[in-house]
Write a protein that binds this DNA or RNA. Structure first.
Length: 478
RNA sequence: UCCUCGGUAGCUCAGUGGUAGAGCGGUCGGCUGUUAACCGAUUGGUCGUAGGUUCGAAUCCUACCCGGGGAGCCA
């Protein structure tokens, strides 16, 4: 069946099925007892009694479904078909509930099965399922309480991010998904080609689509810098791809990243923005998704609300890398990995700082140049053996690095020699260097893993459970 | 990629050399304005895959596949 045929059937063949009904969340919030309601949704559970049967109906508009009361024997002929997962339309009257778990319910007058679901083979039960199992049925897991809540919070996060930047005059810019600079320094990339990989090695005479190797982007930062040096304040928000063989609860091969970039801005301004940003997003999500957040608090992680309050109300700790090293030394703790100036902080060190020592987000700044990217601005007045760059990482309790940013090197000569020291060919980056030749200004920005942010807010333990259809090594079924 | 734990009914798991089990789910019946409903009966298996050891393997050995947790890389 073509899509056109399907749409045609939807609108012409089953008009009653697509007539706009009311959203359950609206009815629960604003419905007047005695009003007639017209609801569409999926049956979450059915309980049958001698005189009445009860349905929990959910349409995704909120965590809570609405209870539908079916008086027997009026609906006896339909009860068998109203299994878990069935799509139904319910017409009836909103009445005060005699039950204890809800204030209102729908006294059904007409029930229409729109799409049946075979109880023998429908994979979702009324009982709780493990997240591991639900990942194998990602096309159905949005119908569960947890994933409905995750997706509503994810939506609220995205909306809050746009609102935050838009209120501050940042332009949302669209940087390319396909990139031909294969050495942005962020690890393995996915190749993009029109050459048939099933054929033997392509003849050298056959050019690929772009005439040079192309890849899926690992970051929109370099392009965002170009746009910031014209528009002052910009941000990207889009998909990002890393082909690393990472198998952890914090990594995806395809994820969403937010990258603000500000002209006329230094590292302090960058850190200030990162902190204000997180406070804003948490405030918005707590306000807009109170019910879902209460669910995460009670069913997923009993610390999510306390953590959110800390983000919103406490100022983030700020510490220089060099101080952090000294602090780790003084802690008296024995770590598995060495703590030494010039070595990167390991997960265990970051966790100690964010979770134990400070108990709130920490911004670590001014890292050694040797462990950071070429584009980060060299600090002045450093002893040569202790050269640092204006980098900052925001470390969040339970998540680790959620934001990584820096002030960018705006001086042409310094940037060129840094690239050469890092083994990069300045010729390849000619346009990036042009930005320093013409009207260069101090500028800064950061990258935020959107999915990690959702993970952080919801308390979900695995990043694969905060994105609808996760892509990870050996997993792209849906 | 490394370390580690695991893969047995639709789901969650027990079974560690001798006839494959429980709870939940599904189905049928009963009961009840129910709400993780309850009570009874019933249904349900290529024990991840392929080899090997053994009279006999879910169980022991080898290889591989897949999943969880941790680490590295990072966002």
């Amino acid at each position: 069946m073509t899509i056109f045929t399907a749409i045609h059937l939807l609108f012409c063949g089953a008009a009653t099925a697509v007539k706009a009904g009311q959203r359950i969340a609206d009815v629960l919030r604003q419905g007047q007892v005695g009003a007639m309601v017209d609801l569409r949704g999926w049956v979450r559970s059915k309980r049958e009694g001698k005189t009445h049967a009860f349905l929990d109906l959910n349409d995704g508009s909120g965590l809570a479904g609405i209870q539908v009361v079916l008086t027997r024997p009026d609906f006896d002929g339909q009860l068998l078909a109203l299994t878990v997962g069935t799509a139904v339309a319910i017409a009836g009257e909103l009445v005060a509930s005699q039950g204890k778990e809800q204030t209102v319910e729908v006294q059904a007058q007409a029930v229409t099965v729109i799409g049946p679901a075979d109880a023998e083979t429908y994979p979702l039960q009324k009982k709780r399922h493990s997240f591991e199992f639900l990942r194998t049925i990602a096309h159905l897991r949005a119908r569960t309480n947890t994933f409905g809540a995750v997706l509503r919070v994810r939506n609220a996060c995205a909306q809050a991010i746009h609102q935050f930047f838009q209120e501050r005059g940042f332009l949302w810019v669209h940087t390319p998904i396909i990139s031909t600079s294969d050495c942005e320094g962020a690890g393995e990339m996915f190749a993009v080609t029109t050459l048939d990989p099933r054929k033997a090695a392509a003849p050298a005479s056959q050019p690929d689509f772009f005439g040079k190797p192309a890849f899926l982007t690992v970051s929109g930062q370099l392009e965002a810098e170009a746009l910031a040096l014209a528009l002052s304040n910009v941000y990207t928000f889009g998909p990002t791809f890393r082909a690393e063989n990472s198998n952890t609860a914090r990594h995806l091969a395809e994820f969403w990243m937010v990258e603000p970039e500000m002209a006329f801005c230094d590292l302090q301004g960058d850190a200030d923005l990162a902190e204000a940003f997180l406070k804003y997003v948490f405030t918005q999500v707590l306000h807009r998704c109170a019910e879902d957040m209460a669910f995460f608090q009670s069913r997923i992680d009993p610390n999510v609300l306390a953590n959110a309050e800390k983000i919103i109300h406490e100022s983030f700790a700020r510490i220089a890398y060099t101080e952090a090293i000294e602090l780790l030394h003084r802690s008296g703790r024995s770590f598995q990995y060495p703590v030494e100036w010039g070595l990167d902080l390991q997960s265990e060190h970051e966790r100690f700082l964010a979770e134990e020592h400070f108990g709130k987000p920490v911004i670590v700044m001014d890292y050694p140049a040797q462990i950071k990217a070429f584009y980060m601005r060299l600090n002045d007045d450093c002893p040569p053996e202790r050269q640092t760059v204006r980098a900052m990482d925001v470390l969040a309790p339970g998540i680790g690095e959620i934001i990584g940013g820096s002030q960018r090197e705006e001086r042409l000569d310094v940037l060129t020699s840094r690239m050469q020291a890092c083994g990069l060919d300045p010729e390849v980056y000619w346009w990036y260097l042009d930005l320093r030749r013409f009207g260069s200004v101090p500028h800064a920005g950061f990258g935020l893993g959107f999915d990690r942010l959702v993970q952080f807010i919801t308390g979900m333990g695995n990043i694969r459970d905060v994105i609808p259809f996760p892509r990870t090594p050996l997993n792209a079924e849906f």
